[in-house]
């Protein structure tokens, strides 16, 4: 085996498996949050927003730059960062997506690819090409569970992902605006006929997408660092998670992210670190082969 250790013959200790799961759940929660961003915007526009990974990158980079420049307390900086990325999301929608509202889905997707390149380039020129970090929210002292360790920051990540999932579920199910957005997702024309302002809902979806993306970037950066081009890979993994969970489904996004993260960690941990990405994606392909609509997607949710 290429670079493999003498691992296969013996079962790994339980503590190691627990450790792999912790790693998988943590990174999976990040993928899940990026996936949720994809889903929110997909529901409103029917298009996949390829700048979603960039929102997460912006969260980390802007947060780090703002903290370095102003020295304000961390919570204030993080709040301002989420606000800033939300505004960037809205601007993206107003300046690029809205003017092309009559266009084909494909054109919208290409616009988002352009936006992703623009955001990446702007950050590179203005904030630099170096990796940036953020301080951990509650220190770096690991917590021991079943012989494995988990950082307080990982708990923040998992907790935030769950909170956002529940929050969005309530928002879409219980509030008028949320229900209006759902209506647009289900049938755009019918929604317009009953008086829903579709344009505003699309703008709102970009605001939400930007905010969720920024939160994902902010909570991961203390553990993983971020860099101006980190959005590409995050976007890719997040997209895979969204598809696995069923494109357009909020719960599905988080579930898909967790699935992908755990698959990665377990295949990397139990087999060999160099098959991690391959195996995870092969398993996802299998899943889509048997359940093309994704884990939690509805079989009848033909959209495009």
């Amino acid at each position: 085996m290429i670079g493999g250790g003498p691992y296969i013959e013996a079962l790994p200790p339980l503590a190691d498996v627990v450790q792999f799961c912790f790693a998988g759940i943590t990174i999976g929660a990040i993928y899940g949050l990026v996936a949720v961003g994809f889903n929110v915007i997909f529901n409103a526009t029917g298009a996949v927003n390829f700048a979603q990974g960039e929102f997460a990158m912006l969260g980390g980079m802007l947060g780090s730059a703002l903290l370095g420049a102003t020295g304000l307390p961390l919570p204030v900086v993080l709040g301002l960062t989420v606000l800033a990325v939300t505004v960037i999301g809205v601007l993206l929608e107003r300046l690029a997506i809205n003017p092309a509202r009559g266009a084909e889905i494909l054109n919208l997707i290409i616009i988002t690819i352009g936006a992703s390149i623009l955001l990446k380039g702007t950050v590179m020129v203005t904030l630099g090409k170096n990796a940036a970090g953020l301080p951990a929210f509650s220190g770096n002292r690991p917590i021991w569970v079943l012989g494995a360790t988990i950082l307080p920051q990982a708990l923040w990540i998992i907790g935030t992902a769950l909170a956002i999932m529940v929050g969005l579920q309530l928002f879409f199910g219980r509030t008028l605006v949320g229900k209006a957005m759902q209506a647009v997702a289900i049938d755009r024309e019918a929604a317009r006929l009953v008086g829903i302002n579709v344009g505003r809902m699309v703008m709102l979806s970009f605001a939400l997408g930007g905010a969720v993306g920024a939160v994902a970037g902010i909570i991961m950066t203390p553990m993983t660092l971020t860099i101006y081009d980190a959005g590409t890979m995050l976007g890719l993994k997040g997209f895979a998670a969204a598809v696995a969970g069923g494109l357009g489904n909020t719960m599905g996004g988080i579930a898909g992210g967790l699935l992908l993260g755990i698959l990665e960690a377990l295949s990397g941990g139990l087999i060999a670190s160099n098959v991690k990405d391959v195996l995870a994606f092969v398993l996802l392909l299998f899943l889509l082969f048997f359940r093309p609509q994704g884990l939690l997607g509805r079989a009848d949710s033909e959209r495009v």
């Binding site: 670079g3 493999g4 250790g5 691992y7 790994p12 200790p13 190691d16 450790q19 792999f20 912790f22 790693a23 943590t26 990174i27 494995a148 991961m220 553990m223 993983t224 660092l225 980190a230 890979m233 960690a265 990397g268 941990g269 060999a272 670190s273 160099n274 991690k276 990405d277």
Partner: peptide, 24 residues
């Protein structure tokens, strides 16, 4: 050399690799 582990340059979590190394 008791363990050979690898990672992608863009990886942001190496706990799996290090966990494997830990038990060597």
């Amino acid at each position: 050399v008791v363990a050979w582990e690898e990672f992608q340059p863009s990886d942001n979590d190496l706990t799996t690799q290090l966990t494997r190394i830990r038990s060597t």
